[in-house]
Design a binder for these strands. Structure first.
Length: 327
DNA sequence: CATCAGGGCCCTG
DNA sequence: CAGGGCCCTGAT
């Protein structure tokens, strides 16, 4: 590993997210596995970003409150950034972090659902976030497949350690994602040596699709959910489980809950029906239930319940969860 | 030591 | 459309 690239603070930008805004529940997701591309502590998140071929360090600071939100974003880079570039970074961040999301109608539609209403109130202003690009998100999705969380972490570490770039800014040393063009030059054996197994082929093929322009995040954003689904499923190594995460996290479809994997099935069944892990509800029943109860906001609603249980787990509140997530 | 499932997906028949 | 195989790891 080369020594880290040193970044300098280039500019500071004030962001006023749409109120209500819960900084910590948005800027930290306890269900995500730890990744060396970011760090969080209450009120602050550091994040690396590869944007338009340039490596950035981002530091978000909470300088407001839930009802009067204000975020101070400082952007670090190797050299000066022009106005147009700076604006594009902010626009992209506002999109990825859903800073302008209006939660009013979502909240209002569950006035008569006391259970969910309580969770929404507890995490008032929390929004779903995708901290990375579509390409990066798909890389993460690939290392999640058919592996326990611990192994996913080690695969991600070795990929970032080999192909990523170490950045130092604000006293932190974090890894940034690789450029797809760089990964495209790696061969499959080289990747397999990093112990990512058969996923090496998926990493190669998905990378190739991005480098060759067969898939483009910006144009996909303007397309329908059905078109997005079709394009994503077409990628080698990307199947239904990965696609439904992308539709929700990356493309902001709040109803994207049509597929439930076995480990999620167990947790949902326990959370909503109190069943034991060995005896979960059938996936079709769960999907029907979520659709009937939460409608067009079903995934967003489930996100609130899901994040709540992972926050509570962090305080030792949910002992049964550890057995189901196998860290 | 062997066997197995895991935060899926592809391919085959 | 069901089911075997896939890289590797830790659990049993």
């Amino acid at each position: 590993m080369k020594r880290p690239l040193h970044l300098e603070e280039q500019y500071i930008h004030g962001i006023r997210p749409k109120a209500p805004f819960n900084f910590d529940a948005t800027m930290h997701k306890p269900d995500h596995f730890p990744s060396p591309d970011n760090e969080w502590e209450p009120g602050v998140r550091w994040q690396t970003m590869l944007w338009k071929d340039r490596l950035l360090g981002l530091k978000f600071m909470n300088v407001g409150s839930v009802d009067d939100p204000s975020v101070r974003l400082s952007v670090w880079a190797q050299d000066e950034l022009d106005k147009q570039y700076s604006t594009s970074v902010i626009d992209e961040i506002v999109y990825r972090y859903n800073f302008n999301l209006d939660l009013a109608s979502f909240t209002a539609s569950f006035q008569d659902d006391p259970e969910l209403q309580a969770v929404i109130a507890k995490w008032r202003g929390m929004r779903p976030v995708n901290y990375s690009s579509l390409y990066e998100y798909l890389m993460i999705a690939i290392v999640l497949q058919n592996a326990t969380a611990r192994r996913s972490v080690s695969m991600m570490m070795s990929l970032l350690g080999t192909y990523g770039t170490s950045l130092s800014f604000d006293g932190k040393s974090l890894l940034a994602f690789w450029k797809p063009r760089r990964m495209n030059r790696a061969n499959e054996e080289e990747l397999r040596a990093l112990r990512i197994g058969y996923r090496a082929k998926s990493v190669k093929r998905v990378t190739e699709a991005f480098v060759e322009g067969a898939i483009d995040e910006d144009s996909l954003r303007t397309q329908s959910k059905e078109e997005q689904t079709k394009t994503l499923l077409n990628l080698y190594g990307i199947g239904p489980a990965s696609v439904w995460y992308v539709l929700f996290d990356v493309f902001h479809h709040w109803d994207a809950l049509d597929y439930i994997s076995p480990w999620e099935q167990k947790i949902y069944s326990k959370l909503f029906f109190g069943t034991e892990p060995g005896n979960p509800l059938p996936v079709e029943k769960l999907v029907e239930f979520f659709d009937a109860r939460f409608g067009k906001y079903k995934m967003l609603a489930v996100h609130y319940v899901w994040e709540d249980v992972f926050w509570r787990r962090a305080t030792g509140d949910v002992p049964w969860l550890d057995d189901l997530i196998r860290l």
